[in-house]
Design a protein around this nucleic acid. Structure first.
Length: 458
RNA sequence: UCCCCGAUAGCUCAAUUGGUAGAGCGAGCGGCUGUUAACCGCUAGGUUGUAGGUUCGAGUCCUACUCGGGGAGCCA
């Protein structure tokens, strides 16, 4: 079909030209007096805006089809693009032909011409992208993904595909989903498909490190799985994660990379998703454009964990969990730092070794590791990463201290045995990034088909 | 997993503290000379989340469960 995208019809097409558009009816307004005609608004997903098509009774199917069109019908409309007589739009279509592809029974079509709650639309995830909000989320998510690839490709990072099914446990990342062909209740892994215990990956980091330690700078970008019973607006059982890993890179380089990376994503969205971002700014999160612009232009705050604890202790407020060196920072602490004290992203570094996993590099003080968390307002932790432990003896000691058997990680320790190099990386949660950028408050509304405990419809 | 709140028409919500289940939107029909969350009129639409209990009587009170929301933990 030689069709014009509505996005192009509204911006590029020449007034007076004959065009064909195809899409789904959003609304129909029929005037049934002496002078009969109908306004049909159409959306095809190419942009937020709809195009208005004006149809009159001269159409052969006017009585039989056009006046009966309702929200959700799919149609192909051919006509002349003309200046609009109305005030809501600059151009519209004077219709020559309306071809109905698929009707949508208005009695039962779930997406009505009215506001719906996100909770309801979540039960209609297969149709919710026909609404303004979810169409906009989909387009912004796409631009974020494109920006991610552009950023790393332009810096010479290699895109590597780490396995979804894994036998390694990226310690500290969370509970894993078992992958098995055995019947329920059996756990004799010898008889299982892979002849050993396997799970869905919780992180591609360990595998990515192997590529970094031969190819330099790499990144993975794919789905990850956590079997945690987390019921919050910030957690999913299946989510997408970007994980760069760079050889010859220390903790400072790593933090620089994370900051540049986020800024590139934010400015890309501001540049390319103007219409959608205006929508979010108006209806979802007033001020989100200003926040993003501010974040894209200003320096992130960098603090060590130790400095952060001091700031929190001197904050002069009552904490539910009083900050104390050696305990992990709480949500209330992170919110104070990003939303009140600094009002922008904060990079926290050098956490106590006791609260971080074995692969993070032990610092000279013997107490902290070269960890890095990037915290943003409202969402909290959006990036977690570290410089990795490149010294074989220190690494195996820390594994043992955390109750792990270094033999199980023989290939991982081999990287330190043969030509070890300092290297570092981090993981960015894609959905949390989409949340931050759009202002959407629930993570289940920024992924097409959310998986959460007791919920895997579609 | 823990704490708090909720579930009533297709959707969003009422129901005077236990006494005849209503409205708006949406839908159908009719009207309207340019509308755009169109407007005006009429009509239809209900096993009050599920299962039990208390009571002459339960949308309302009690118990359990399911689902949803907010907060916390785990984390990205």
């Amino acid at each position: 079909m030689n069709r014009t995208l509505i996005k192009d019809a509204l911006t590029d097409a020449v007034v007076g030209s004959e065009i064909t558009v195809a899409g789904w009816v959003r609304t129909v307004r029929n005037h049934k007096g002496k002078n009969r005609f109908s306004f049909i608004t159409l959306n095809d997903g190419s942009c937020l805006a709809t195009i208005q098509a004006v149809a009159d009774p001269k159409l052969s199917n006017y009585e039989s089809e056009v006046v009966h069109l309702t929200a959700g019908c799919s149609v192909v409309v051919t006509g002349k693009l003309v200046e609009s007589q109305g005030k809501g739009q600059s151009v519209e279509m004077q219709v020559d032909e309306v071809r109905l592809l698929g009707a949508a029974d208005a009695e039962v079509y779930p997406i009505q011409q009215k506001r719906h709650t996100f909770e309801f639309l979540r039960t209609q995830a297969h149709l919710r992208t026909r609404t303004n909000t979810f169409g906009a989320v989909a387009r912004v998510r796409n631009v974020i993904c494109a920006a991610i690839h552009e950023f790393f490709q332009s810096r010479g990072f290699l895109y590597v595909h780490t396995p979804i099914i894994t036998s390694s446990d990226c310690e500290g990342a969370g509970e894993m989903f078992r992958v098995t062909t055995l019947e329920t209740g059996r756990d004799d892994f010898d008889a299982d498909f892979f002849g050993r215990r396997t799970s869905l990956t919780v992180s591609g980091q360990l595998e990515a490190e192997t590529y970094a330690c031969s190819l330099g700078s790499v990144y993975t970008f794919g789905p990850t799985f956590r079997a945690e019973n987390s019921n919050t607006p910030r957690h999913l059982s299946e989510f997408w994660m970007v994980e760069p890993e760079s050889a010859f890179c220390d903790a400072d380089d790593n933090a620089d990379l994370a900051e540049d990376f986020l800024k590139h994503i934010f400015s890309s969205v501001l540049q390319r998703c103007g219409e959608d971002m205006e929508f979010f700014n108006k209806w979802i999160d007033k001020g989100v454009i200003e926040t993003l612009t501010h974040v894209a232009e200003s320096e992130f705050v960098r603090l060590t964990y130790t400095e952060a604890i001091e700031i929190l202790q001197k904050a002069g407020r009552k904490w539910e969990f009083p900050p104390e060196w050696g305990n992990d920072t709480q949500t209330e602490h992170e919110r104070y730092l990003t939303e009140e004290k600094f009002q922008r992203p904060v990079i926290l570094t050098d956490y106590p070794s006791t609260i971080k996993p074995f692969y993070m590099r032990l610092s000279d003080d013997g107490k902290t590791v070269a960890a890095m968390d990037v915290l943003v307002p409202k969402i909290g932790e959006i990036i977690g990463g570290s410089q990795r432990e490149e010294r074989l003896d220190v690494l195996t000691e820390r594994m043992k201290a955390q109750g792990l058997n270094p033999d199980d990680y023989w290939w991982y320790t081999d990287l330190r045995r043969y030509g070890t190099v300092p290297h570092a990386g981090f993981g960015l949660g894609l959905e949390r990034t989409v949340q931050f950028v759009t202002g959407m408050s629930n993570i289940r509304d920024v992924i097409p088909f959310p998986r959460t405990p007791r919920s895997a419809e579609f």
